[in-house]
C-alpha cells in the first residue's frame, strides 16, 4: 500500500546538518498494522510526518497505492481524506475553541461539496461517535470538558469521518493511563478489523507494539535496524540495539506456575 524507498530527511542549519532519517526503505502492506518502535530522536516521528505531509523528505520517495506522495517540494494528496492521523497528545491536537462536533467534521472541509454532505450527515456522525464510545450530548461540548481517553476517542472519530484507508497513529496512547490505554487500544484494534484499515503504529512502548502490530520496524538513530514479524523479533531479536531495547523493558513477569515475579 505504501512504498518508502531511499527516503532521507536531513535538517541543516548553516554548517551543521542533522540526519533525522537515513536512507530508509519500508513497505506497508494493505490491511496490516505495522509498528515503528524507537526512542526519542530515532526518527520514527519524522518518518510518520513525511507520510502525512508535515515534513518534506530531503531525498527518496513515498508512494501510496502507486502514486507518489511528494512531488518535488509539494505534498500530493492522492485523494483528500484517504490518509489520516491520530496524534499522541489529544489535549493539543484538538482546538480548544471548537466544539466536538466541529472538530470531528473538520476533515470534511477538504472534500468536495457532494462528498461533504454525504459523509457529514447527522446519522453517520451519530453512528461514528457511538462507535468510538462517545454520546450524542458530547457533540456540543468543548475538549477541555473531557478526560484524556475521551479526547483521544474524539481524535479517532475525527480521523475516521472521511473513511480513510490508512491511518498513522503517532504514539496514540502514550499520554494515557494504563486502564484508559487498554480501552483505546481495544477500540483501535476493533476498528482496524471492522473497516479493514491499515495502520502505521508509532510508539516507544514495546508492550503496546507487541500487542498491536503484526510486523514491526525498529528504528535507531534514523535508521531501520531491523524489520519483520513482531513475534519473531520479540523472541529472537537480531540487532544488538533491539536486544538492548527489549532487555531494558521493565515488566511484571507473572509466571503462572510459581506466581513469582521475575525481575528482568
Amino acid at each position: 500500500m505504501i512504498e518508502i524507498s531511499q527516503l532521507e530527511k536531513i535538517y541543516s542549519t548553516g554548517k551543521d546538518c542533522m540526519i533525522a532519517v537515513k536512507t530508509t526503505n519500508l513497505t506497508i502492506i494493505e490491511g496490516e498494522i505495522l509498528g515503528i518502535v524507537g526512542e526519542s530522536g530515532s526518527g520514527k516521528s519524522t518518518l510518520g510526518k513525511m507520510i502525512i505531509g508535515l515534513e518534506r523528505p530531503s531525498n527518496g520517495s513515498i508512494t501510496y497505492k502507486g502514486h507518489p506522495l511528494w512531488n518535488k517540494k509539494k505534498y500530493n494528496r492522492v485523494e483528500a481524506g484517504e490518509i489520516q492521523t491520530v496524534f499522541q497528545d489529544p489535549q493539543s491536537s484538538l482546538d480548544p475553541r471548537m466544539s466536538v462536533k466541529d472538530i470531528i467534521l473538520e476533515p470534511l472541509l477538504a472534500l468536495s461539496k457532494v462528498e461533504r454532505k454525504e459523509k457529514g450527515n447527522r446519522e453517520r456522525l451519530l453512528q461514528l461517535i457511538k462507535r468510538v464510545g462517545l454520546k450524542e450530548e458530547h457533540l456540543d461540548r468543548y475538549p477541555h470538558e473531557f478526560s484524556g481517553g475521551q479526547r483521544q476517542r474524539i481524535a479517532i472519530a475525527r480521523a475516521l469521518i472521511t473513511d480513510p484507508s490508512f491511518i498513522v497513529l503517532d504514539e496514540p496512547t502514550s499520554a494515557l493511563d494504563v486502564s484508559v490505554q487498554a480501552q483505546v487500544l481495544n477500540l483501535l484494534k476493533e476498528l482496524q478489523k471492522e473497516r479493514n484499515l491499515t495502520y502505521l503504529f508509532i510508539s516507544h512502548n514495546m508492550s503496546v507494539i507487541r500487542y498491536m502490530c503484526q510486523r514491526v520496524a525498529v528504528m535507531f538513530k534514523g535508521e531501520i535496524v531491523e524489520v519483520g514479524d513482531t513475534k519473531e523479533i520479540f523472541e529472537h531479536p537480531e540487532h544488538p540495539y533491539t536486544q538492548k531495547l527489549l532487555s531494558s523493558v521493565l515488566t511484571i513477569q507473572n509466571d503462572t506456575d510459581t506466581q513469582s515475579i521475575i525481575l528482568k
Partner: peptide, 9 residues
C-alpha cells in the same frame, strides 16, 4: 491542532 488541520488538506 493546526498541524493536524494541515494534514486534512
Amino acid at each position: 491542532f493546526v498541524k493536524s488541520a494541515e494534514t486534512f488538506g
